[in-house]
Design a protein around this nucleic acid. Structure first.
Lengths: 327, 327
DNA sequence: ATGAAAGCGCTAACAC
DNA sequence: GTGTTAGCGCTTTCAT
């Protein structure tokens, strides 16, 4: 029909016809079926952002940024939550690919997410990685740093006079967790400090996961006096356990962490390295839009630098908050 | 083709044929195009959750719950963020409706979101409301309470001896904000306490929005000695301002709020009424799945009760945390 | 400038 | 059991 012409406002329609058609559409309450359109055009105008934990503010802040930029470019952004799970991730990829989303931003659940990515690519869907590298995959990626900041944070703890240091990082299959552990070990070695195996813990990336490993860390007879946490949720879990055991932070246990928590916390407590979520999201989307516009050049990599914020938990400032009264 | 039969594993295919077809699919790397399938089946297997602020943990926790239950029912959940904005909301509705999502869970941006809803319904897409009522709309809804808890929280502040109370609620067009203000006023009136107009503030639902209105509240010569905050972000903004002005909480300013913040905060500070996000999400999804299964009965309403948690910010327990050192 | 017709990849209905 | 056909709602040629 020529109705299509007016919907897509081709200029090859007379004003009279256009008006006539538009009136008709109004009266019937016509809404174009873009699913049919997609079938023939092979594009949907939908982009997907797959994160590994949607309840983590870091990801939603990144997503918020991406969403705005995507909307400006005429795309709708949908969020998917892989729950740090490779299988869920693959299911999403399958569903999204057969729904023909135009592009995917992926924070890979595992450094073995190659299969997910290949699935998407086989379908011709451009993928841009976020936050985490994937082994053996050469793809556009926007991420922060992990190795260097881990060294800096560890050095800072050492500068505070600590010699028995531990780390509670994310799962071993998560790229950033590995990198942070690598940096932690490198810093200790460089100073000639020991790196006891049992002081390097991998936890689920949740508060309770952090608590669980912190418990193991602090249970030993001569526990670390300072801990590097892989992210703010892990840090919170560590604080929970310190409280359980009557340890004051930073007096009895110093703590530094990755990621600033931008939630409604009433005061800023954690000394941390803040990964620039919004900037990473923006960079990733830019890569994706370029691909969508036909860019076929080699893989690009944006590595964004964040800030170290020194506050109370490491011992730099003030005292610890009073005892918890969480119900 | 009979290929369709094996893909949808109808039992009317011989094992031999099935195997033959499957091998063929393997070798070609065939992935079914569910967009074409949707075109004829008029279902996509996709549900959408439209929230007004994806960076707010309350919504993502709710979403996380919904997602799990949706997956169990064979649906993929996508998240959309309306940014507390009616226009964005309508754009999402248009796009999603023409993409033929099977159902929508909507936390309406405004109590005037009727248009969005009608758009969806005209397309035959079942809608279930979350968290907020919409004027003149009779629809399935799962929400918490606002009026009664607002009374309880206000009464609690009064029990602490306060007589000059203020409220920093969300925008006037948000249903929950209105209800909370209504409860606040009712509680004061019942005790014969004054309700100065300037003590009732409506703010953008962000930390900075809360700070802005708190500033106005505390700038007057005889400011309130206690504040009810509409949610935890507003509460955080109020704390920011209290700190600016050198006011200690709860000694100089008592504070109670809606929503518990489940982030990585290192200690629980806010006295609050916790809306049961996960239960609300679960109830809403159940409604939607019922509709999807063909339920045509009248609108249902689930009103879920939450818990009051009394902690430090109202003066019930402990002292305030030390001064902030946020960089 | 407009109408007609083909076809996107699939499923449903109907033969065989 | 399996092949054939029509048609989902649109865009895109190709005529007119």
């Amino acid at each position: 029909m020529t109705v299509s012409r007016v919907v897509n406002n081709s200029r090859l329609v007379s004003a009279s016809t256009r008006e006539r058609v538009e009136r008709a559409m109004e009266s019937v309450g016509y809404i174009p079926n873009s699913i049919a359109r997609s079938l023939v055009q092979k594009r949907t105008g939908v982009l997907a952002l797959l994160v590994s934990d949607i309840t983590h503010t870091w990801f939603t802040q990144l997503g918020h940024e991406v969403e705005g930029a995507a909307a400006a470019a005429g795309y709708l952004l949908v969020f998917g939550n892989t729950d740090e799970n490779e299988l869920t991730e693959r299911e999403y990829a399958e569903k999204l690919s057969s729904l023909h989303v135009d592009g995917v931003l992926l924070a890979p659940a595992s450094r073995e997410s190659r299969e997910t990515i290949e699935l998407l690519q086989r379908r011709g869907i451009p993928v841009v990685l976020i936050d985490r590298e994937v082994e053996g995959v050469e793809l556009d990626i926007a991420r922060g740093e992990s190795y260097t900041p881990a060294i800096e944070l560890t050095d800072h703890l050492i500068a505070h006079g600590h010699t028995r240091l531990g780390i509670v990082a994310g799962p071993d299959h998560v790229w950033t967790a590995q990198e942070r552990v690598r940096g932690f070990k490198a810093a200790l070695r460089r100073r000639g400090l020991p790196v006891p195996r049992r002081f390097v813990r991998h936890a689920q990336l949740t508060r309770s996961g952090g608590a669980e490993e912190a418990r193991k860390l602090l249970a030993s007879e001569d526990p670390p006096s300072a801990i590097l946490a892989g992210n703010s949720y892990l840090a919170a879990g560590i604080v929970d356990v310190a409280r359980e055991r009557g340890l004051r932070i930073p007096e009895d246990l110093a703590l530094v962490t990755f990621d600033d928590s931008e939630g409604p916390s009433e005061w800023a407590f954690y000394s941390c390295y803040e990964q620039p979520a919004r900037a990473i999201g923006a960079a990733a989307l830019r890569f994706l839009l370029d691909r969508l516009a036909g860019d076929r050049s080699g893989a690009r990599r944006a590595v964004l630098r964040g800030d170290v914020r020194l506050r109370s938990s490491c011992g730099c400032l003030g005292a610890a908050p009073p005892q918890d009264h969480r119900q």
